[in-house]
Amino acid sequence: MSLFWQVDFPALLAAGLASGLCALLGNFLVLRRESLLGDAIAHAVLPGIVGGFMLAGALAASAMLAGALAAALIAAGAIQVVRRLGRIEPGAAMGAVFTVMFAAGVFMLEQAAARNLHIDADCVLYGQLEDILWLDAPDISALPREVWTLAGVFAAAAAAVLLLAKEIRLAVFDPAFAAALGFRPGLIHLGLVLFVAAAAIASFEAVGSILVIAMLICPPAAARLMTDNYRTQILLSIALGTGSAFAGYGLAGFAPALLGASWSLNAAGCIAVVSGLAVAAAALFGPRRLSFASAAASLGRG
């Protein structure tokens, strides 16, 4: 098998799955006007990941997943507590909680590194896309574990979104009305938080938390600027997410060579930059872009 199938294909698959998964879930954060919550959860799961890792002693997916879900629940609860007791705006409550939890995670990482456990800050932030290899290439069962984990979370998230399509749409648009009808918008929001946490943990090993944060927000935000149709927005965001993953990976692999440079680019970083460019393009050229006049008017009102 060629080098492409052994090295590039599994990396593309992992990056594409992670980006598509985060883009799918990010739609509901963007529509709830809670984009920062994705950022908060992606940071806040770190102590859970490291804690699970330290207890299990290896990159055991189940231990880290359990730790990350617990950390996400603690973060979501703490945000509510800080918001109520402190009577501050939600963004400030999220900012306070996730920076403290991320700092605790970094502290725990250092302790883990001191004990010679194989986990470090670079791996968490940038991921290890280059290390995802499919050495026995045509053998499906030999696909790297990260790819299987991502595919599993993606399938579960897609199934939940399809099964609960109308319940989610109603809970995101008008939670009070949803509750009055007897639906459970609180449970649906909790499920969203847990899925974002699961996406963060499934993605972090391959692509790192920076890419998770970018993909939770950029593709849905770009899609939001391009359509007024709910379903189109979600499908478009997934396409933009996976498209950014492929384009960013290609850019990282070929741009330095084309420029004749000897240095290399970080693939996760390139993907995040491409997704940011997609938002910029949608804001400048998308059908729902603000004209400069109305943007200035809204700034004046604000």
Partner: peptide
């Protein structure tokens, strides 16, 4: 929110559905 007037009116039927 990216929904149409008809989408919102139809939400009144979700409880029965």
């Amino acid at each position: 929110f990216p929904v149409s007037a008809r989408d919102v009116a139809a939400m009144g039927l979700y409880g029965r559905v």
